[in-house]
């Protein structure tokens, strides 16, 4: 799980162009969205859906399901480990 969390952090930094933050600086348990999060918006959320699909073969039947998954890096990693198809 630790490995997956680190990989995921790097992938998110890359896909969302978070140039001013390093993987070490991201707290896996902290909220991704909201004022104290990573400064992400609704378009970033849609890009995260693409990331999950592209890298882990996870498709949400309803994109609003993603809300419960995109709480923190840890919740994302947990969901990926249970549902990944690649």
């Amino acid at each position: 799980m630790e490995n997956l969390i680190n990989t995921l952090k790097e992938q998110i930094i890359d896909v969302l162009n978070l140039e001013e933050i390093t993987a070490e600086e991201i707290d896996a348990a902290a909220p991704i969205f909201g004022d104290n999060g990573l400064g992400l918006d609704s378009i970033d959320a849609l890009e995260l859906i693409v990331l999950l699909e592209k890298n882990y073969g996870i498709r949400f039947s309803d994109p609003s399901e993603a809300k419960q998954v995109f709480v923190s890096i840890a919740t994302m990693a947990e969901y990926i480990s249970k549902n990944r198809t690649k």
């Binding site: 969302l16 378009i43 970033d44 849609l46 890009e47 693409v50 699909e53 592209k54």
Partner: peptide
């Protein structure tokens, strides 16, 4: 085989 339209780019 690698069809992932990017919302961020589309904007």
């Amino acid at each position: 085989e690698n069809y992932f339209p990017s919302p961020a780019l589309f904007v």
